[in-house]
Computed example of a mutant assay.
Amino acid sequence: MKIFIIFVLFISYCFASTISVIKVEAMHCPLCTTAVKKAIKELDGIEKVSVILNTKEVTVTYNDKTNLKDILTAIKTTSYEGVEISTIK
């Protein structure tokens, strides 16, 4: 029974997450990626942030405590502009 409950919680956790890929074209160095990542991580509901400088893409996994608009606003606080490429709920 405990295993079943853990399984149900795990499945609900997995399906409660949203993954967005955001293009931040102006990033040009590791400090840029660090600033963007830090700004996003400060939001409630962020589960994972991955920034790839070569592709200038940020992948964010988050729950219902935040949304894409808040993430894009957080990116703007770093003087960069983010554009949504895709979102999977």
Results as ranks from 00 to 15, higher is better:
M1D: 04
M1G: 15
M1Y: 09
M1V: 09
I3H: 11
F4I: 14
F4E: 15
I5N: 06
I5M: 07
F7S: 10
V8H: 02
L9S: 13
L9W: 11
F10E: 00
F10C: 11
F10W: 03
I11Q: 02
Y13V: 08
C14T: 00
C14L: 12
S17V: 10
S17R: 12
I19L: 14
S20T: 13
V21Q: 11
V21D: 09
I22W: 04
M27E: 04
H28N: 14
L31D: 10
C32F: 01
T33S: 15
T33M: 07
A39P: 09
I40S: 00
K41L: 10
K41Q: 12
E42S: 13
E42D: 10
D44K: 15
D44Y: 08
D44Q: 12
I46D: 03
E47T: 13
E47I: 15
K48R: 13
K48Y: 14
V49E: 10
V49P: 06
V51H: 11
V51P: 08
V51A: 15
I52N: 14
L53I: 07
T55G: 06
T59Q: 11
V60H: 07
V60F: 05
V60K: 07
V60I: 11
Y62M: 01
N63V: 07
D64F: 04
K65C: 00
T66F: 08
N67S: 10
N67Y: 08
L68F: 07
L68K: 13
L68A: 05
K69E: 15
D70V: 00
I71D: 10
L72W: 01
T73S: 15
A74Y: 04
I75F: 01
I75C: 04
I75Q: 04
K76Q: 11
K76V: 00
G82C: 05
G82V: 07
V83S: 02
V83D: 03
S86N: 13
K89G: 12
